[in-house]
Nucleic acid binder design. Structure first.
Lengths: 123, 123
DNA sequence: GGTATTCGTTTACATGCGTAAACATAATCA
DNA sequence: TGATTATGTTTACGCATGTAAACGAATACC
């Protein structure tokens, strides 16, 4: 089952560092989301059900670890968008951002470098 | 309010060609989705509520037109993903696909051309 | 003109999500 | 030891979504 947006917020915290206690997670998300304790607990439980995190007892409380990696998640999400909107091809996606003037100088420089590296690899 | 995935299927049909009748839409989506008539009607109504399509009477039935453009939709979705997962920057997104070996020869060629064009524009 | 057909509108219903309160349980403190 | 605190589990509730059936109105056919 897919990870929802709210669940992903929890995952991001765990990806930054793990393991973490529920309270620690609450503190970490507190910055962005104004969630109550119960909210975080519920989300953690749903993530457990979905096997996206695992928990291990640590005395009185649990420590949580991501089980799904950020790479896996990013891949799923990115591929989904690419397939749905750009027929699975990357160039049109970039062209879209280019048309929207969403390519920064830095982006352009990095893309150039990336292509250069692909070139080097291949030869 | 956001367009859901099922709703987007209807929109894609209208983006390919408009206006279309509900029946026409049903036939068009029939290829991919095995939806009943009522399903398409419901989705059209939700899209009307969301003002993503408009309808105009044509004799006994209605003809539907997209009101949200595909460009607008693609922009929203793409920006959403970019911001959520890549800190709003395009190069890391492309790097991700590159690492996943998801860049086809054609993609690479097109990206190269795109960068070349950006170069030309600027000078 | 009554009945069947065709459309659109309304209602339904299960599931997931965002958000949390209520409850259970174990540990701690007075 | 009884009350308080801390922590996880269960239940709740409104809204969106996927999927449609039911209903109603207009039109067409016999």
């Amino acid at each position: 089952m897919a990870i929802s947006e709210a669940e992903a917020v929890i995952m991001e915290v765990l990806w930054r560092q793990a393991p973490r206690s529920a309270e620690d997670i609450l503190v970490q998300v507190g910055a962005q989301q104004d969630w109550q304790e119960g909210t975080v607990k519920s989300l953690l439980n749903r993530l457990l059900t979905k096997k996206a995190v695992k928990a291990e007892r640590d005395g009185r409380r649990y420590l949580y670890w991501p089980r799904l990696t950020r790479e896996q998640y990013v891949s799923q999400e990115s591929k989904g968008l690419l397939d749905r909107l750009f027929d699975g091809r990357v160039a049109p996606l970039v062209a879209h951002f280019s048309e929207q003037r969403k390519l920064s100088k830095k982006d352009i420089a990095e893309l150039r470098k990336l292509l250069q590296e692909l070139d080097d690899e291949q030869s």
